[in-house]
């Protein structure tokens, strides 16, 4: 099976210390109010007979198998790496149009305040390049996050996937399931927050109207040109009616 880096998170272990958020911000030089990862928490039902329990749900870009952000990117600056399944952004190619930001059901993307291009979690590609785990994984005091190739039972995340076969869950919006590669063990807590993925209006217009219309216009023009070429080749001696030629002048 192809390599697919992912995370298996035990939300029950998360104590909402936000260490992963801080470590990520530093490791990836994420500016200002921008954050590549998060911790979601719902309201526990304190009224219930059996005492409620807060569940904290750590998350970040889920490197989806059907990433709507990739479908919305016109330039291919956002793409899913064939080598390890991580969804990456080519900053040099990104024109900062923001279509991918709108298209992600998890709000995992943002416009980098400093660079003005799209940004998001890439499982710390610079740390991985030197053999380190993502900063959030290394820093987590309770080891709530496990990272690795989900299809390799020898990796920390793959081991948990194999051990919890069929029990690890994804947090998805049923109306636009992007098949994320972040799995949760046990009670993941808040489930209702991912929104339905939406393609920006300009992109929908382009794909559904402008693209076919331009193809038809260029195609018909091409046919017209071919018709002229055909006529030029078939009717070798095409001349105006001779009687008036010269008197009236202009014939073409």
């Amino acid at each position: 099976m192809a390599k697919q880096l992912g995370m298996v998170v035990d939300a029950g272990l998360c104590i909402d210390c936000k260490g992963c958020m801080a470590a990520c911000k530093v490791a990836n030089e994420v500016p200002g109010d921008n954050w590549r990862n998060w911790i979601k928490s719902g309201d526990a039902d304190w009224q219930a007979k059996k005492r409620g329990r807060m569940v904290f749900q750590p998350g970040n870009c889920m490197q989806c198998d059907k990433p709507t952000c990739v479908s919305a990117c016109p330039t291919g600056a956002t793409y899913k790496s064939k080598a390890d399944g991580v969804v990456v952004i080519d900053r040099g190619l990104c024109i900062g149009c923001g279509q991918c930001i709108k298209a992600c059901p998890y709000g995992a993307r943002f416009r980098n305040e400093k660079l003005k291009v799209a940004d998001k979690c890439d499982f710390c590609s610079s740390r991985r390049a030197v053999g380190l785990e993502p900063a959030c994984v290394s820093t987590c005091p309770t080891k709530a996050r496990a990272f690795g190739d989900l299809n390799d039972p020898a990796s920390p995340a793959g081991k948990l996937m194999a051990r919890n076969k069929g029990k690890a869950t994804q947090v998805v919006n049923a109306q636009s399931n992007t098949d994320p590669n972040l799995y949760y063990l046990g009670d993941a807590g808040l489930k209702s927050w991912p929104v339905k993925a939406q393609m920006p209006g300009a992109f929908e217009f382009w794909k559904n109207l402008a693209d076919p219309a331009v193809k038809v216009v260029v195609g018909l023009t091409g046919l017209g040109v071919l018709a002229m070429l055909g006529k030029q080749l078939m009717l070798k001696n095409d001349a105006p009616p001779p009687e008036e030629h010269g008197e009236e002048g202009g014939h073409e």
Binding site: P74, G96, P200, G201, F205, W206, A213, V214, V217
Partner: peptide, 23 residues
């Protein structure tokens, strides 16, 4: 950024129409 988004679409349309003229 919606301005950038529509610019891409309109840039494409203008390129398509002028290409037809240039053919």
């Amino acid at each position: 950024t919606w301005l950038v988004q529509w610019s891409i679409t309109v840039h494409f349309i203008a390129a398509g129409v002028t290409t037809a003229l240039l053919m």
